[in-house]
Design a binder for these strands. Structure first.
Lengths: 201, 201
DNA sequence: TTGACTAGTCACTATGCAGTGACATATACT
DNA sequence: AGTATATGTCACTGCATAGTGACTAGTCAA
C-alpha cells in the first residue's frame, strides 16, 4: 500500500481491537502485527516499540468520557448537589459500560503500574477534581458531618468494579450483571442513596 | 529430600508467594519451579499441570474470610440491619486489605473466566447469600422502596475496587489510598450511608 | 541382599516471543 | 530518465516458555 499514515492507523486500530478482544495480556508485537496485517518491524520503525505504541494509542485518548457526555444535559439544568451527583454517577455507569477498551485499560491499571498507567490515572484524577469543582457548593447545614467526596468515591468505585466484573461474572451479591434489570437496580440504588443524602444534607 | 508431601507443600507455598509478588501474569511452570526450588517435572507428576495445581491451591481455600472474621463479634451483639451491614462492610474492607493473595485472585478474576474462577465466584456468591440470610429481616416500613441488596452490592463492590486499585494507585477521586486516614474516610462514609438508611428505613 | 517403586535430575523438543539486519521495490524529487 | 528516500518483506538470532522421555538414586519390603 506504501502509505505510512494509513499503516500507522491500521496498527493503532489493531491495538484497540486486540485490546477489546484479548485484553492487555494478549497485546504483543507479534499479535499486533498479525491483527493489523502488517509486518511487525513497522511497529518498531513507526513507533519505536510496544510502550511507545501504547502511548500513542493512549494519546488519541478518546476512551475517557467527557463531562458533557457524562451529564448529557446543560449544566444550568442542575441545581442541587444530589441531582448532579446522581447524573454524574449514572453517566459514569452508562459511558463505562459502552466502552470495552476503556474497561480493558482500567483492568490493566489494576495490574501494572508504569509511566503510562500513571499518566492515565493522573489525567482522570484531574478530571475528577474538575468535576468536584463543578458541583454546587452547598453541602447544607450539617455538611461537615458528611464526607461527600468519600461517599462519591465509594459509589463511583463500586460502579466501576461492577462494570469491570461483568466481563467475567454473571452475578454479584445477587445482582444480575447480564440483565438490564440488574443495572437498573443499581441505578435505583444510586438514586436512593443520593435522595437520602439530599434530605439529610 | 525424598519427601513427596514436603515437596508438594513447597510447590503450593510457592504459588502463594509468587502470586502475591508477581500476580497471575507471573505464574508459570518454570517460574514456579524456580520459586519452589524444585524441578518443574514434579509439578506435572504431583499435580498434573498448572491448572490442576491452581485448583489444588484454591482448594486450600484459606483466602476468603469467614463470616466470623468479618464480624469479629458474636452474632447476638447485632440488632439492626444497619449495624450488621456496617460491620460486614467494614469487615470486608479490613480482611481484604490484609490478604494480598486474595486481592491477586480477584484481580485475576476480572481478566479470565475459566472453570476455576467460576468456582471461586460461586463459592463467594454462596457465602454472600448466606450473609444476606443472616441479616435481620426488618427492612422497616418503607423497606420495599429501598433495594438494600443492590445498595450493599454497590458499596461492597466499591470497597473491593478501592482495595484492588490501591496496589497501583495512590489516590482515587481525592481519597488517599496510601494513608490510613484515607481508609478511615471510607469507613466513615460507610457509617454515614448506613446511618441514613437506618433512619429512613 | 535383592528387587520394586518412586522422588528427584537432566536433557531434549517444539513453540512463541521480542528485536535486528539485509534486502526489494514503490514513490518522489532532481 | 535517473537517483535517493523510505515503505514494506523476509530471514534470522536469542530467549523463555510448556511439556516429555530417559535416567539416577534413595527407600522400603520380602
Amino acid at each position: 500500500m506504501r502509505d505510512r499514515d494509513k499503516t500507522s492507523q491500521k496498527i493503532l486500530q489493531a491495538v484497540g481491537r486486540l485490546l477489546a478482544r484479548a485484553g492487555f495480556a494478549g497485546i504483543g508485537v507479534n499479535a499486533l502485527a498479525r491483527e493489523a496485517g502488517i509486518d511487525k518491524v513497522l511497529i518498531y520503525r513507526y513507533f519505536g516499540g510496544l510502550p511507545e505504541l501504547l502511548r500513542a494509542f493512549a494519546e488519541k485518548g478518546d476512551f475517557w468520557p467527557t463531562i458533557g457526555q457524562l451529564l448529557q444535559r446543560p449544566l444550568a439544568d442542575f441545581h442541587s448537589l444530589a441531582e448532579m451527583g446522581e447524573a454524574l454517577l449514572k453517566g459514569h455507569l452508562r459511558e463505562l459500560r459502552r466502552r470495552p477498551v476503556t474497561q480493558e485499560i482500567m483492568r490493566w491499571e489494576l495490574h501494572e503500574r508504569n509511566e503510562l498507567t500513571e499518566e492515565l490515572a493522573r489525567y482522570r484524577e484531574r478530571q475528577g477534581i474538575e468535576i468536584m469543582d463543578l458541583l454546587p457548593k452547598t453541602p447544607g447545614p450539617r455538611g461537615a458531618a458528611f464526607d461527600y467526596a468519600a461517599m462519591a468515591a465509594l459509589i463511583h468505585a463500586g460502579l466501576t468494579y461492577l462494570v469491570l466484573r461483568s466481563k467475567t461474572a454473571d452475578v454479584y451479591m445477587g445482582v444480575d450483571l447480564t440483565d438490564e434489570a440488574g443495572w437498573r437496580r443499581l441505578e435505583n440504588a444510586i438514586s436512593g442513596l443520593l435522595a437520602l443524602l439530599e434530605k439529610a444534607g
